[in-house]
Amino acid sequence: MPITKQYLKSRPECKITFVVPAKEASKVEVAGDFNDWNTSSLKKYKNGNFKGQLNLPVDKEYQFRYIIDGEWVNEIEADAYKWNDFAATENSVLVV
């Protein structure tokens, strides 16, 4: 589940692209610090990947997780993981 980062030269922001391979899934969402843990749907493509983009301010860390057909899943290529007492599990961490 790769994440790509493209730092913008014109603003102190980074364009984040989430790509989640989930051919059998009907819905993939992402939730994290950057959207107050509200879900944002990723678009499904013919190759079975779900994809979404957003711009985030730089010099910060963001915790997040994917929701694949209702199941919370971590990014396997996350920059780090942090324990979340509320959910009693680890969250993926994105360092921008």
Rank of each mutant, 00 (worst) to 15 (best):
P2H: 14
I3P: 01
I3C: 01
T4R: 13
T4S: 15
K5A: 12
K5C: 15
L8C: 13
K9A: 10
K9D: 10
S10N: 13
S10I: 12
R11G: 03
R11P: 01
P12I: 05
C14D: 01
C14E: 15
C14I: 15
I16L: 10
V19S: 12
V19H: 04
V20K: 12
A22T: 02
A22F: 09
A22P: 09
K23D: 10
E24W: 01
A25I: 09
V28M: 05
V28I: 08
V30T: 07
V30P: 03
V30S: 03
A31P: 00
A31F: 09
A31M: 03
A31R: 13
A31V: 07
G32V: 05
G32L: 06
F34P: 02
F34G: 03
N35C: 13
D36L: 07
D36I: 02
N38V: 06
T39F: 11
S40I: 07
S41W: 04
S41A: 15
L42S: 06
K43N: 10
K44L: 12
Y45M: 08
N47A: 12
N47K: 01
N47Y: 10
N49D: 14
K51S: 08
G52L: 02
L56H: 04
L56Y: 09
L56W: 05
L56C: 08
V58C: 11
V58A: 04
E61F: 00
Y62A: 06
Y62S: 06
F64W: 01
F64I: 00
R65Q: 07
Y66H: 03
Y66D: 02
I67L: 07
I68W: 07
I68N: 01
I68M: 09
E71G: 03
W72I: 05
W72A: 11
V73G: 00
V73P: 02
V73A: 01
E75I: 00
I76P: 11
E77Q: 12
E77M: 06
E77D: 11
A78G: 05
A78R: 04
D79F: 03
A80T: 02
A80V: 04
K82M: 08
W83D: 07
N84C: 15
N84Q: 11
D85L: 10
D85E: 11
F86R: 13
A87C: 13
A87M: 12
A88I: 09
E90V: 09
N91D: 15
S92F: 01
V93E: 01
L94D: 00
L94C: 05
L94E: 04
V95F: 02
V95W: 00
V95M: 04
V96S: 08
